[in-house]
């Protein structure tokens, strides 16, 4: 198409200015990368290295250098970049190992970089295809069709259908639900209150069975508090403990 030339851009230099940040991308000082393969490809091109004979030691060092630059990454994204770092280091170490002389000399020795090269080539294929899409959409944005005939549809303020409304309504409902959950506050008891409660119980009677006492508590937190309160009472010498059999119930008796 003759039009393309007019709207052609240098993809490498233009991209950083028109793309917004998203969770899928990282933005470094010199540009933006859509993933570890993208960064790797960039480094290989920067080094003007042959993709079929990647200087793996140098590229690995470069890659690790850039990885350190990446700050506050989305965790899953960071993980993908780190996986690539690990792959590079693995290949680098394999390349350092002396190769065993194959017993069958005809057998081709697998280059440790082979799989990575294949992946890079496949990735670059689709990256090139995405540049084509980018160019197409740029040209397409320069083409206009007749505006819609006067109707609600061309009024941008109500340019939505019932399903859009429903979607938004559901979103709001869902959000509201979350809010409510966040607002619920559990009634919480303090240790002091629990101590007071236990002391009140001992005012009425001489003895309490630990199991029974704990069973009366309704929440996990209350059980824990009650247990701590009992320990506290023992420490202060208000009650003594008595266990009649091994693993049996513990009886709390008010000290005289």
């Amino acid at each position: 198409m003759e039009q393309i030339e007019q709207f052609s851009f240098d993809f490498q230099t233009e991209i950083p200015h028109i793309i917004r940040e998203s969770r899928d991308e990282i933005r470094l000082q010199m540009g933006e990368f859509a993933g570890p393969l993208d960064l790797l490809l960039y480094l290989i091109k920067q080094e003007q290295a042959n993709i079929f004979d990647i200087p793996i030691a140098r590229i690995t060092d470069e890659y690790l250098k850039y990885i350190r630059l990446i700050k506050s990454l989305d965790t899953s994204l960071a993980a993908d970049f780190l996986v690539m770092a690990a792959t590079l280091i693995e290949i680098k170490s394999k390349m350092l190992l002396p190769r065993e002389i194959s017993e069958a000399p005809d057998e081709e020795i697998e280059d440790p970089r082979r799989e990575l090269v294949d992946r890079l080539l496949e990735y670059e294929t689709y990256k090139n295809a995405s540049q084509m899409l980018w160019t197409r959409s740029t040209v397409e944005q320069a083409i206009f069709t007749r505006g819609k005939i006067e109707s609600d549809e061309n009024n941008t303020e109500v340019n939505s259908n019932v399903f859009d409304l429903l979607k938004i309504f559901q979103k709001i409902l869902a959000k509201h639900k979350e809010d409510v959950i966040l607002k619920i506050e559990r009634e919480e008891m303090s240790l002091a209150e629990m101590l007071k409660k236990l002391k009140a119980m001992f005012r009425e009677r001489e003895q309490l069975h630990l199991l029974e006492l704990l069973r009366e508590m309704s929440t996990r937190q209350e059980i824990i508090l009650a247990f701590i309160a009992v320990l506290e009472l023992v420490r202060m010498g208000n009650v003594t403990l008595l266990q009649q059999s091994i693993f049996g119930d513990v009886v709390l008796t008010k000290s005289k």
């Binding site: 028109i18 917004r20 998203s22 993933g35 993208d38 980018w134």
Partner: peptide, 8 residues
């Protein structure tokens, strides 16, 4: 425009 990641 679509992001790099989205285009890819």
């Amino acid at each position: 425009k679509l992001s790099l990641a989205a285009l890819e």
